[in-house]
Write a protein that binds this DNA or RNA. Structure first.
Length: 845
DNA sequence: CAGTGAGCGAGCTTCCGCTTGACTT
């Protein structure tokens, strides 16, 4: 029996801490929150003074009952969840859910996972901070009220299954408004003048570039300036050298990691978090969901030693960073390598790359400033007063942290004036080699990428490190925004070149506006946003979160009653809900495109129940209107009358085959051909509007041939091809392509492998190579009991009976477990719950 | 699961933050 039970939030943390605390302590994990508001209904008893109605969800039931059992056996339960609002609430929920008596619990917190910090925290337990818990309850209830009262309005007024919330709706708003800015952006062009000069002096002959301090608005002005420059001289008016320095960026938080992984490695926010989680779980980095810039003293010490060793002591500068982020709760450290002395790690390519990024950023954050020397040279032009050429140069005198890491920017056009300038003296007269006046265009605002949206949300204090990635995926799942590329367009620009006293004029073209993986609002996103801004501008306000956070802080300080706060909020919010339900129009984004020349009826574009559509004729008229859905890539905002009318060309009859009509159309799954009620998908190569009868027949025949093959496969496979090690070897075809069956083992062959290309020889090769892969995984097998194995998992060894997995109890050596030991462990039944398969989305029929 | 789109309407959808082993057919 163990006297002490310690409960932390994450299993990986539990594993680490257990080592520090010794055998008197059993460390378990709660896997985050254990209770939440009821899934059904509002989950808040409004009449009963906004009392939250909590439940333990099905997936947490097992965790709670296990913890309950462990708590019963322990003398003292140490609640060691994070030291922030959510962590405090987790501790309180644990106390409630496990029915723990006040005198049995101790609340402890530690700021870093080191032996000292943990032992120290155990010496200084405190009570659960009720005020902090209440602040969390207020946060939770407010989010539920906002989300569950506004979303149903959208179902009624726009489309079913839509959603609104304090965080996601603001995220969508940012994207919609940015799109509007881009739409309303007026591009202006100007002429930038750059000269290439040659200077000959005691240091030799050198060339350098300088830019005119004035930009011309029109072609004429630019040309006139160049003409006047045919007969001028240039002289160095001043040389200004000044020292400058650059400092490293602070260590990574969740948000900055997502940004840099996006910019430098091209990873999506979700992918970044997945890889970071893997690194965390294998003990290579500290916790990846954090808003803290803090590094532990231990980490700083190791960083200092490493930098000194790798680059020399002059490169070391230990720094403490402080966060300026609104609402940061800093329960953890910044993201850093667990062992900073490990410059690289074992793992796959992406894991290595992400680790390298984290290592460099961490190391650089503790390195010296880079010392630069900036030079500005002003060149006078004879017969001009205001117009001057400026040459700028930048020389690195001491590289400091730049040796390791340079932070990227979203705006790559900020490539400043780097490089050296040749030596020269005031009064010297450089000669002009060439001067170019080039037409440039003002840059429209950038669309958000996933990571830059996260940065903006963080700036506004909206959302938390644990929710950035899920929020981004929610607004895409709801169809409010899409991540896509935008093709660049060609545009022409003028260029005037002055060389050897003559002016040449040329018109060139450039590609512009190409964007990759940016977030674009959809029609639904725009309509929902406009609706919400119109009716709930207070919730959609960029400062709404900040202002309620202030109130949560007051609750946490014990200066405000949380029920009072929610009551006040609801008193103004709920009438808004009622009013909107009663008075608002159905929002469909309807637009009149014009008149259909054939029927002389009105043509509208609007959002229907199944997405954007065109409607010919009015719903009020006697004759039923005609409808057609928009194609991919078209939008309510931009579709023209002509484009709309061609949508009615489908479905069309493309010809005849086997005495039946061939119909061509575009359906839910893209373009198709239909013959006799059977569908044949059209690939990207074929255009449904023009596809010929001949081609359609081809497609039908191809599909029939494939189907026939499939049917043959079904009767042919699984096919026995021989025996190996006394067990049958079969080839089978499954969901994931061809695979081998060898006894009870399944060996996947990969999608590209054709089943009929496998003979016994090849099959045995595959079986052997699979075995080799598995030897790393399988620790023990038992003859005659093929289903029961001891395996190496990500989180250590476990026993599998083919269906369920079982943890190996502490103190048992997985390498020497007997079959009887395994059976006993299995029979005790402390299996981890079977992983639930993701529920497929219900069809919207 | 591919001709839908108003209307009748049961019952469903939805929030934000914590955390999240392996075992395929």
């Amino acid at each position: 029996m163990v006297k002490n039970l310690v409960i932390v939030e994450s299993p990986a943390k539990a594993k680490t801490i257990e080592k520090f605390l010794g055998s008197e302590f059993l460390v378990r994990s709660s896997f985050g929150h254990v209770r939440d508001l009821t899934k059904k209904g509002l989950g808040v008893d409004i009449e009963g003074g906004f009392k939250p109605l909590y439940e333990i969800s099905a997936e947490k039931a097992k965790i709670v009952s296990d913890l309950k059992r462990a708590a019963k056996e322990a003398e003292t339960v140490w609640l060691a969840s994070d030291e922030d609002r959510e962590g405090e609430a987790i501790a309180w929920h644990l106390k409630e859910a496990l029915s723990l008596k006040e005198d049995k619990i101790r609340r402890i917190v530690f700021h870093e996972i080191t032996k000292n910090a943990i032992l120290e925290s155990v010496k200084n337990p405190r009570n659960i901070d009720v005020n902090l818990v209440n602040a969390q309850q207020a946060r939770r209830v407010l989010d539920r009220l906002v989300g569950f009262e506004i979303s149903p309005i959208l179902w009624k007024k726009i489309k079913p299954a839509l959603s609104a919330g304090r965080v996601q709706s603001v995220a969508v708003r940012l994207i919609v408004e940015r799109e509007n800015e881009i739409k309303n952006f007026m591009t202006v062009s100007f002429f930038r003048v750059v000269g290439v000069f040659e200077i000959s002096n005691t240091f030799g002959t050198n060339t350098f570039q300088a830019e005119l301090n004035i930009r011309f608005k029109t072609e004429e002005e630019a040309k006139t300036f160049l003409e006047k420059c045919i007969s001028v001289t240039y002289s160095i008016a001043s040389i200004d050298k000044k020292p400058a320095k650059k400092s490293p960026a602070p260590p990574f938080t969740t948000s900055t990691l997502q940004q840099e992984a996006g910019r430098k490695l091209g990873l999506s926010v979700e992918k970044t978090m997945q890889i970071a989680q893997q690194l965390y779980e294998s003990g290579k980095i500290t916790y990846m969901r954090t808003d803290s810039l803090n590094l532990s003293d231990m980490a700083l010490g190791v960083a200092k030693k490493e930098i000194g060793k790798l680059f020399g002591p002059e490169y070391v500068k230990i720094r403490k960073y402080r966060t300026s982020t609104k609402g940061a709760q800093e329960a953890h450290e910044a993201i850093r390598p667990t062992y900073i002395e490990n410059q690289d790690i074992d793992g796959d390519a992406t894991q290595k790359k992400l680790y390298d990024l984290i290592w460099k950023r961490t190391i650089a954050s503790q390195m010296s400033d880079a010392v630069l020397e900036k030079t500005d040279i002003v060149i006078d032009i004879s017969s001009f007063v205001k117009e001057k050429f400026i040459a700028s140069g930048e020389v690195i005198k001491f590289d400091g942290f730049l040796k390791v890491y340079i932070e990227s920017t979203d705006d790559e056009s900020l490539n400043g004036n780097s490089g050296t300038l040749p030596p020269m003296v005031v009064g010297e007269q450089p000669s002009l080699e060439e001067m170019q006046a080039t037409q440039k265009y003002s840059q429209q605002p950038y669309r958000y990428a996933e990571a830059s949206l996260v940065r903006k949300l963080e700036e506004l204090g909206i959302g938390r490190p644990s929710t950035y990635a899920p929020t981004i995926s929610t607004i895409q799942k709801r169809g409010y925004v899409v991540k896509q590329n935008k093709e660049g367009v060609s545009r022409s620009y003028k260029n005037f070149i002055l060389k050897k006293g003559k002016i040449k004029e040329e018109t060139k073209t450039e590609k512009t506006g190409y964007e990759k993986n940016k977030l674009f609002p959809t029609d639904i996103g725009t309509i929902v946003n406009d609706f919400l801004v119109q009716h709930f501008v207070n919730i959609l306000d960029y400062n709404f979160t900040a202002s309620v956070e202030k109130e949560f802080d007051e609750i946490a300080q014990g200066e405000k009653d949380w029920n009072e706060m929610i009551k006040e909020f609801y008193a103004s919010f709920h009438p808004q809900v009622e009013k909107t339900l009663k008075t608002s129009e159905r929002a469909s984004g309807e637009r009149l495109l014009g008149i259909d020349p054939a029927s002389k009826k009105n043509v509208y574009v609007k959002l229907g129940r199944y997405g954007p559509m065109i409607q010919i004729g009015d719903t009020e008229s006697e004759e039923k209107p005609k409808f057609a859905g928009l194609n991919k890539g078209q939008s309510i905002d931009t579709i023209t009358l002509n484009e709309a009318l061609t949508l009615f060309d489908l479905p069309r009859i493309a010809g005849k085959y086997e005495n039946e009509n061939i119909t061509v159309g575009i359906g839910r799954f893209g373009p198709y051909i239909k013959l006799n009620n059977t569908f044949y998908s059209l690939g990207l190569k074929d255009d449904p509007y023009t596809v010929s009868e001949q081609r359609a027949i081809e497609v039908i025949e191809e599909k029939r041939k494939k189907d026939k093959e499939m049917a043959e496969n079904k009767s042919k496979y699984p096919l026995k091809i021989g025996e190996y090690e006394g067990k049958e070897v079969l080839i089978a075809i499954g969901k994931y392509g061809a695979y081998l069956k060898h006894g009870i083992d399944n060996i996947p062959l990969g999608r590209s492998v054709k089943a009929d290309s496998i003979d016994l020889q090849k099959a045995i090769e595959s079986i052997l190579s699979q075995k080799e892969k598995n030897t790393k995984k399988v620790i023990r097998e038992f003859p005659g009991e093929e289903r029961i194995k001891v395996l190496n998992g990500k989180y250590g060894p476990y026993i599998s009976n083919g269906k369920e997995n079982f943890k190996i109890p502490k103190g048992k050596n997985p390498g020497t477990l007997t079959f009887e030991d395994c059976s006993e462990i299995i029979n005790k039944g402390t299996s981890s719950p079977a992983k639930k398969k993701p529920v497929r989305n219900k069809k919207s029929t």
